[in-house]
């Protein structure tokens, strides 16, 4: 990754923040860029549901099994540990972590994931979620790449919380819950489109996102319109 490409990535993400933007779409874009820039095979963002769990809001690919693997960490897994300790968690060899997280390790290995990193999304003293990075080869990311990954996690945090001016803890709670519900709307819309157009879920997501882009619409607004039946894709 050249410095020029890196600079372009941050400029592109910052540019998204200037306009009225969609939080879930923005976080999706962050995860796609993470996979490219950090050289990992997949990336995902999980947010705290403020009830002790984590929920997936965005992933670099919408393949159902990846979403499932991300989501499975609620309760046990690198992201849950990261959420609770507030510190990055790095797993060089998932297979060797079967004692710590048996279900997660088994599922990850089945999916061809060999290494995992989880980085905290931190706002002052509060951890609001984690950025999850999956690699198909065992080993740890080097220090510079980790630093870059944390910078992207910080950008994700800024994007999430900028949607409304964050004055206090109440606003964070309001924003997190809104983002989590937007994600549910998108899943519902994926189902509608997948059924009508005979598509897989990731194809349905691509179609939805493409339609939002080309129509200059916010992703979750268009998703809601699809579910409400006021628009068809």
């Amino acid at each position: 990754m050249s410095e020029r490409q890196l600079a372009e990535t941050f400029v592109e993400l910052a540019d998204t923040l200037v306009d009225e933007f969609d939080v879930v779409d923005f976080l999706h874009q962050v995860t796609v860029r993470c996979a490219e820039v950090l050289g990992v095979s997949a990336a995902g963002v999980l947010l705290t549901d403020q009830r002790g769990g984590l929920r997936v809001v965005a992933a670099s690919t919408e393949r159902t099994r990846l979403l499932g693997l991300l989501q499975q960490q609620t309760g046990q897994g690198p992201c849950t540990e990261c959420l609770h300790t507030g510190r990055p968690v790095a797993v060089a060899d998932v297979a060797a972590a079967a004692d710590r997280w048996p279900r997660f390790a088994a599922e990850a290995c089945q999916f061809g994931i060999a290494s995992v990193h989880a980085l905290p999304m931190r706002l002052r003293t509060e951890i609001i979620g984690t950025l999850n990075l999956f690699g198909t080869e065992p080993g740890l990311l080097d220090e510079d790449t980790i630093w870059l990954a944390q910078a992207l996690a910080d950008v994700a945090t800024i994007g999430l919380l900028q949607a409304r001016s964050i004055r206090d803890r109440e606003s964070i709670a309001e924003q997190l819950q809104t983002a989590l519900n937007s994600r549910v709307v998108i899943e519902q819309a994926k189902g509608v489109i997948a059924e009508r157009r005979r598509l897989d879920m990731d194809e349905a997501f691509a179609l939805l996102r493409g339609a939002a882009r080309s129509g200059n619409r916010r992703l979750s607004e268009l998703a809601r319109a699809v579910v409400d039946g006021t628009e068809t894709i």
Partner: peptide, 8 residues
């Protein structure tokens, strides 16, 4: 949620 959309 996907199934909800499909059943819809």
């Amino acid at each position: 949620h996907q199934a909800t959309g499909m059943v819809l």
